Simulated assay, not measured.
Amino acid sequence: MKKAKFLIGGFAVALLLALAAGFVLAQGPEGTEEEAGATGEVGAAAAMDDKIPIQGQLTDASGTPLTGSYDLTFRLYNAASGGTPLCEDTDSVSVDNGLFFAYMDFCTAEDINGQQLYLGIEVGSDGEMTPRQPIYAVPYAWSLRPGAEVKENLADDPILYLYNTGSGEGLWSTSVDGEGVHGSSGNGIGVGGYSLLGPGVHAESLSGAALSAAGTGVITSTAKSYLWISGNDIRPFHESDGVIIDADTIGGAKIYRGPNSGNKNVMLPISVIGPLYGQDVTVSELEIYFVGATEFDGIAAVLMRRQTGVCSTTSCYATILYDTADHSCDQANNSTGCTLTYSLTQNNVLTEQSGILYLTIELFFSGETTWVEIGGVRLTLEHD
């Protein structure tokens, strides 16, 4: 019959140092500053095996220290008695005058996740010793327990910085009924994410809201959005012009001059959401897709305005674009049509007070039966 007297203080410190470092070796030769890196980062190449060091003293029933090689089995439980081991490891351990040093392998982060753990030990086939030894945290490891709080007043650095040099997630959080990740800020960003290729922040929910923005509800984004407006929405500027508009089945519309000579104006109303999730919307680019029956059928002028009030005077709108140059795109030489592109730089921000847009296009024709087809319009929207 043998018994083990464990150096609980030393064991607890060794174990929790291993946990705090992410299952790296807690005891051993100290590395140099060059090996650690100037910033103190631990890269994937520097990470060591996920082993838990255990130190103890083995004696016989009378308390005499033993010397020799013994099979020791270590088991981790989440209960002081009973239950099933979370993980276990059996090794042949060298004992010198009762003292031994061993490593427990085969435990994972799912086993050691902040819950209270107990260590069970068995020598050979003598049966597991009782009572099991509770594992306590060293003070700095308390910040890894469920419900722990890490608090500091930092101006430029994050409280917690996770960096994955591979293709996996930097942070993964799951909740059965609550919030997977909750972020709150008095004046800054509640939750921020950065990725070179994948999503900076990924939100997924089986039944509730995948992403919820409370408080001001503002969601900022530097991504561009695009609004497509069908040419089917083209309408005459004045009914008396006699212009004829034939909508086609692919989203465009052919505009004929009709019996009255001269250039004709058509208009296209545009509805844009702005602001979007609390952000003002900037209309940064306008593209018009068109083609003419001949080189003498095309666009004579483009006028785009933003409504600022309800009236018929110039004080109720702001001009975003006014181009009076002629543009032609004859069907014979441009079977897929042409794109007229404008970069917009003035009066192009849609706010909660002003956001209605309207586009007027002046067309020129070579005859009564010739036409200009407007396939549609695309707006580029920015939100920063």
Rank of each mutant, 00 (worst) to 15 (best):
E35T: 14
F6M: 15
I219R: 07
E352W: 01
L211G: 05
L162D: 14
G124S: 10
E33G: 11
D96R: 05
L99H: 03
G274Y: 02
A155Q: 08
F74G: 00
S240F: 09
Y322D: 10
K2F: 12
L227A: 13
S69G: 06
F364D: 07
T108D: 13
A79M: 08
D330N: 07
N333Q: 07
T324A: 14
D246V: 05
N78E: 12
S94Y: 05
A61P: 12
H202S: 09
G355I: 08
A332G: 00
L17Y: 04
P236Y: 01
L160C: 14
V291G: 00
Y77N: 03
G298L: 02
L16C: 09
E362C: 09
S271A: 13
T339A: 15
Y226S: 10
V176L: 15
S221N: 08
P158N: 07
T165Q: 13
Q27Y: 13
S184E: 15
V191N: 10
T369F: 14
L15I: 12
A45F: 14
T32Q: 13
L86M: 05
N113S: 06
V13I: 13
D330H: 00
L359S: 05
G9F: 10
C87S: 06
L25G: 03
L58G: 03
A21V: 01
G83T: 02
E352D: 13
P134K: 08
A141E: 03
D105I: 02
T84H: 07
V150G: 09
